[in-house]
């Protein structure tokens, strides 16, 4: 089973770290993984995207033009990547700031109001973990427990008090779907 994923949005939304957390969970589950950022002069407010591949086979190209799953977090990214989702694939998008909706009917389109949920919870930092929770509910390629285990291993001790918040966000994200 191979999942070829692009996560794309504004810099500062946690796009790259969401991909990293997903890739690390894949590693813990013994999968082959690759994480390829678009590393342009991105900054808060600019666009940022990352290609993540999780597979039980060796990964050839880290660069792709067709994706099983696109996680899209702004209008530019939606305009650019909707046509790059494989037929039968999944487009997951946050409707915040979106005025032109996705139009394809040969893919599964899922709206995840993660920005709204993050604002409501008063914690914008949980935004990307809400999305990850939603993504893993739709495509359980790794378990939320593995994601938490990954956070425990990669986060420095001084940030461990944030783990319960992340766990909560993943659970809440799953409920948004």
């Amino acid at each position: 089973m191979t999942n070829e994923i692009i996560i794309t949005g504004f810099g500062g939304q946690g796009v790259l770290s969401m991909g990293k957390i997903l890739a690390y969970a894949g590693l813990l589950d013994g999968l082959e993984v690759s994480w390829m950022p678009s590393y342009g002069p991105e900054q808060r407010g600019g666009t940022a995207n990352v290609t993540v591949i999780l597979s039980d086979e060796a990964i050839s190209s880290p660069v792709l033009d067709q994706y099983d799953i696109a996680v899209v977090l702004n209008q530019q990214s939606l305009d650019k990547f909707e046509s790059h989702v494989k037929p039968g694939g999944t487009l997951l998008y946050d409707p915040y700031g979106i005025h032109r909706l996705p139009s394809r009917s040969d893919i599964t389109v899922v709206e995840v109001p993660a920005t709204e949920a993050a604002i409501a919870s008063g914690n914008m930092k949980a935004f990307n973990m809400l999305l990850l929770g939603a993504l893993l509910k739709l495509h359980p390629m790794v378990s939320p427990e593995t994601v938490i285990k990954g956070l425990e291993k990669t986060l420095p001790e001084r940030h461990h008090h944030l783990i319960p918040m992340n766990r909560e966000a993943i659970t809440k994200g799953a409920e948004l779907v």
């Binding site: 990293k20 590693l27 950022p37 990964i59």
Partner: peptide, 10 residues
């Protein structure tokens, strides 16, 4: 190159 330098793998 920038891909091999910047990408993460096992």
């Amino acid at each position: 190159d920038g891909i091999i330098g910047q990408m993460m793998e096992k």
